[in-house]
Nucleic acid binder design. Structure first.
Length: 581
RNA sequence: GCGCCCGUAGCUCAGCUGGAUAGAGCACGAGACUUCUAAUCUUGAGGCCACAGGUUCGAAUCCUGUCGGGCGCGCCA
């Protein structure tokens, strides 16, 4: 992004230039691939500020040994004014120490770039479509949807920050049997609204109270017109209105979490437009769909199993375990048959696709990946497509599991949880674990205001910076980069950590792992709190040292930039950076 | 039976797509508080990275198998 490349990017360029020079001098063959070359902070800070594995990775291609190659690289790097020392260590690591001035310049870059510090051009403006949530429009959002929603949303922000154009998409499953069930459930509420005694909600229908107002609205709209009418007359209009009402509710629930999709794509519209049929024809032409028998499921063969001939997609050709039906025996589309066409549609509007799914759908990943490979791979390169699975969240209250049962309607809604613990807590907590690991969500722990709670810890860091700046302002001290040379080693350590933000962003975006931002923020907060605590015993290490204005202003400048960084990181996670707590 | 995910300190988890002596918090042990910035701080101990092989300069990380936990497996969505 920047006209001001950040420190890590700059050193990567320097190293690249050195390697190019070595190629030109004949030490390495031309166009030696350098993909595996990294520039990163060494694990042990005593080794230096930056380390590169270049010599070890490239030694084989240079037909020499790592240490010899390292010698050549070091010779050139040592000439750089930003490098104060370059040493070969161990099997061929190159450890660099970076000039103080270069770190201080990085601190100025944070100030200069502000909210843009950490942005990357990595995505090169490529469009990524990220589909997340896509909960069935049959009721309010519950906690089962929450993690995917937050992870997907944070990932979308992250990819945007990393230079992609992002489409946030929600696939509305408004065409299957479940929405018919919804329509029937709503019909019961409709009769109820007209004063009929409906008794218990029949087994198999949705019992939730949230359908009561929908029934009332229908009664208002249609009067008693459909009271005794056959289902065929009211099913379609009831379904339409019920789905619309559910979507409105879902949007409101998502808004509570600060989530707003760019696009809601309707499965029913997709089908009405004939997209699945087009896909089928296209696939049949290439013999990727054929009429065949489905094998009985392995393991537990059901008694009522009857082999039928169905149109099957050859997903086995692309790594699936079984060919998959795209239509049911009554001719209507299976979920997969429509989903296949849907993904093709998404692929036409994007350079890459990402789906965020709950782990309970893991079993269908192979078939949809097969479908995308088949449909986008035919004419050139397949569109890159990843399915990220988020694992289950177990809700706990004081260590005891919270029971949820769909049948009895006692599920914990997302709205309830957000109301109880707040948006920021929900979002941050969902991002403090890698998505593919199961997690617990304990109501007692997530609202705790102590340093054991990462949400609090990070937000408090920002609040602390703000309160320090407020206090300084009261004493007529404003942050200034006029005398940054007064900053000591402890302060410089914080700068070094802060300078990693841009590369953390890129790594997190590449890996599609927004939780890395959360962990980085926790580390950064720990550094600031640690420095703060230093001031307890050593008043000369406080941000505000009354006797020394220049030093205070330099430290305040540092504090302000740490605050800026926390804001940038929290913005990616969709968590508010509060100014006081 | 099959597929996917997970297995790292007593507990909850990181580990930067293969790097150097595997980290943090909690809990545990020992110290510190006449508020100056204690919504605590310093410090110590704690590990066969589930297990067994393999790949290579080098593995917690990649591959194979075993064990353990979770999720799923019909034309459902």
């Amino acid at each position: 992004m920047s006209d001001t490349p950040t420190l890590y990017a700059r050193f990567t360029e320097k190293l690249d230039a050195v390697l190019a020079a070595l190629e030109a001098e004949g030490h390495m063959p031309p166009d030696t691939p350098r993909r595996a070359v990294t520039v990163e902070p060494p694990r042990d800070p005593s080794h230096g500020d930056l380390a590169t594995n270049a010599a070890m990775v490239l030694a084989k291609q240079a037909k020499t040994n790592p240490r010899a190659l390292a010698g050549l690289i070091v010779e050139k790097l040592a000439a750089d004014p930003d490098v104060t020392s370059a040493e070969i260590a161990g099997p061929g690591f190159i450890n660099l120490r970076v000039a103080r001035e270069a770190w201080l310049a990085e601190l100025r870059a944070v100030a200069e770039l502000g909210a843009d510090y950490g942005k990357s051009t990595m995505g090169a403006g490529r469009t990524v479509n990220i589909e997340y949530v896509s909960a069935n429009p049959t009721g309010p959002m519950h906690m089962g949807h929450c993690r995917g929603a937050v992870v997907g949303d944070a990932l979308a922000s992250l990819l945007e920050f990393a230079g992609h154009k992002v489409i946030r998409e929600y696939y509305v499953n408004d065409a299957g049997g479940q929405v018919d069930v919804l329509a029937r459930s709503v019909h019961v509420r409709y009769r109820e609204a007209l004063g009929k005694d409906v008794g218990e909600i029949p087994e198999g229908l949705y019992p939730g109270d949230y359908l009561v107002p929908v029934g009332e609205a229908l009664a208002e709209e249609f009067g008693d017109r459909y009271l005794a009418a056959p289902e065929s007359e009211w099913l379609v209009p009831f379904r339409e209105r019920a789905v619309a009402a559910m979507l409105e509710m879902i949007r409101a629930d998502l808004a509570l979490l600060g989530i707003h999709h760019d696009l809601f794509s309707s499965e029913a519209e997709l089908q009405a437009a004939g997209k699945p049929a087009e896909a089928e024809a296209w696939l049949r032409e290439r013999d990727l769909v054929y009429d065949g028998m489905l094998e009985a499921p392995k393991g537990k063969t059901p008694e009522d199993w009857e082999p039928v001939e169905l149109p099957l997609f050859r997903s086995t050709k692309f790594g699936d375990d079984q060919d998959r039906p795209i239509r049911k025996s009554d001719g209507s589309w299976t979920y997969f048959g429509a989903d296949l066409a849907y993904h093709y549609q998404k692929a036409q509007g994007a350079d890459a696709l990402v789906d965020i799914w709950g782990a309970d759908h893991a079993g269908t990943v192979k078939r949809i990946k097969a479908a995308v490979a088949a449909m986008t791979g035919a004419d050139g390169d397949a569109v890159p497509f990843e399915v990220k699975l988020v694992q289950m969240v177990q809700l706990l209250r004081d260590g005891q599991p919270v029971k949820m049962s769909k049948r009895s309607g006692t599920f914990v809604t997302l709205a309830d949880v957000v109301r109880e613990v707040g948006k920021d807590v929900v979002r941050f907590t969902m991002l403090t674990r890698k998505p593919e690991a199961q997690m617990d969500f304990d109501f007692a722990k997530v609202v705790e205001a102590s340093k054991d709670n990462p949400v609090f810890y990070v937000q408090y860091c920002h609040a602390r910076v703000c309160s320090t700046l407020r206090k300084a302002a009261a004493e007529d001290l404003a942050p200034s980069d006029g005398h940054l040379e007064l900053l000591g080693e402890e302060e410089l350590e914080m700068v070094k950590l802060a300078a990693q933000f841009p590369r953390i962003v890129e790594a997190a975006a590449t890996a599609r792992e927004p939780h890395r931002i959360a962990f980085f923020l926790h580390d950064l907060a720990a550094a600031l709190h640690g420095y703060w605590n230093l001031g307890n015993d050593r008043p000369d290490k406080r941000f505000i040292v009354v006797q020394d204005g220049n030093l205070s202003r330099a430290r305040l400048f540092l504090a302000a930039q740490i605050g800026q960084l926390v804001r940038n990181g929290l913005a990616l996670l969709g968590v508010e950076a509060v100014e006081e707590m």
